[in-house]
Design a protein around this nucleic acid. Structure first.
Lengths: 142, 142
DNA sequence: CCCGATAGCAAGAATTATTCTAAATTCATG
DNA sequence: CATGAATTTAGAATAATTCTTGCTATCGGG
C-alpha cells in the first residue's frame, strides 16, 4: 500500500487524494514515517523523524496531519492510560500489549472467527463504532 | 488501658485500614461518593460531590485520594481516549461501553467462561497484569 | 502524657500533551 | 492570472494532572 501522489484523477475537480484526503507534502511525509517504522511513535516522535525530510515542519502541523490521517482512517490513534497518544498504521482490528519491561507496544490480533459479541455481554441495541483493547504486562520469555 | 469511643473526633476513630490503606476522612468520603453514584465520575465530579460533606477538601487531595484508592485496588481508573480519567468502584474485570448519544458509560461484563487467551493471539510468554477494553458506539433501541 | 517521626492535607504553582489563533502560504479552479 | 479555500506555521492558550511547600493530624515509643 504505497502512497503516491498519483496521477490527476480529477472527477469533480479535486486533485491527489487518498481516501478523500488531499495528500500534501507534510501529510505524505508523516504517513511515510509511520509506515517506515511501526513502533507506535508519539506525535513528538513523528515530529522528530519527519524533520529529517522536512526540516521546517512544525509540531502543530504534525498534529494536524495525524488528525487528518486518523479522521480518514489511514492511521489509528492508540491511547494508553494517560500517556501521550501513539499512532499506528495497522488498520486491521487489533489490540495492543504494552510490555512494561521494555516499553515496547505489540499489536495483538484477534483469533480468527471471534467477534466481540461472542465475548462481551453488550447492552441491548448497542452498535459498536470503535473498539480499544489495551493490555499491560510483562514478557516472561522461558 | 480502656478505650472509649471518643466522641470528640471523627466518627471513624483511629488507624483503621482497608487493604493496608489508612482510611482518613477524605479517603473515606471520596470512596463513599464513588460507591453512592456509580456513573464513572471524573476527578472533578468527585471533587464537587465530596464538597457537600467536606467543604474544605481540595482538588489535589481528591486526586491524592483517588490515586491511593486505585493503588490499593479499591477503585479502578478508566481512561477513555484522551478524556479526563474516570473512576469506578466496580472491581470485577469488565470493559466499558461509551454511548456517544448520551455520554453515559456502561459497564460491560465478559461472558462467563471467557478468557483473554481464547480471544486474542497473545505474544508468547506474555503475562497480563491489566486489561482495558473500551467500546464506543450508540444505543439504537428498537 | 509528651515527643519526635511520619503521613496526609491544602493552596497554589508548575508541567505538559494538545489545541487554538492569526497570519502567511499553497493550491485548485474559474 | 485572480480568487477563495485549505493548509501550514509559530507561538499563545488550555486543561488535566502533578508537584511543592508549609501546615496539621496521627502514630509509636518512652
Amino acid at each position: 500500500m504505497l502512497l503516491q501522489p498519483s496521477s490527476k484523477r480529477t472527477t469533480c475537480g479535486t486533485a491527489d487524494e487518498v481516501s478523500g484526503l488531499r495528500m500534501t507534502r507534510q501529510r505524505q511525509e508523516v504517513y511515510r514515517v509511520l509506515l517506515a517504522q511501526r513502533d507506535h511513535p508519539t506525535a513528538n516522535d513523528v515530529f522528530m523523524r519527519v524533520k529529517d525530510g522536512l526540516p521546517n515542519i512544525s509540531l502543530a502541523t504534525v498534529y494536524n496531519c495525524l488528525e487528518a490521517l486518523v479522521a480518514h482512517n489511514l492511521v489509528r490513534q492508540v491511547n494508553f492510560e494517560r500517556e501521550p497518544s501513539r499512532y499506528c498504521p495497522n488498520l486491521e482490528e487489533h489490540g495492543h500489549f504494552h510490555d512494561q519491561g521494555t516499553g515496547v507496544i505489540h499489536d495483538v490480533k484477534f483469533k480468527p472467527g471471534i467477534t466481540l459479541a461472542d465475548v462481551l455481554e453488550l447492552p441491548r441495541g448497542a452498535v459498536i463504532q470503535d473498539v480499544e483493547i489495551n493490555l499491560r504486562g510483562q514478557l516472561r520469555l522461558a
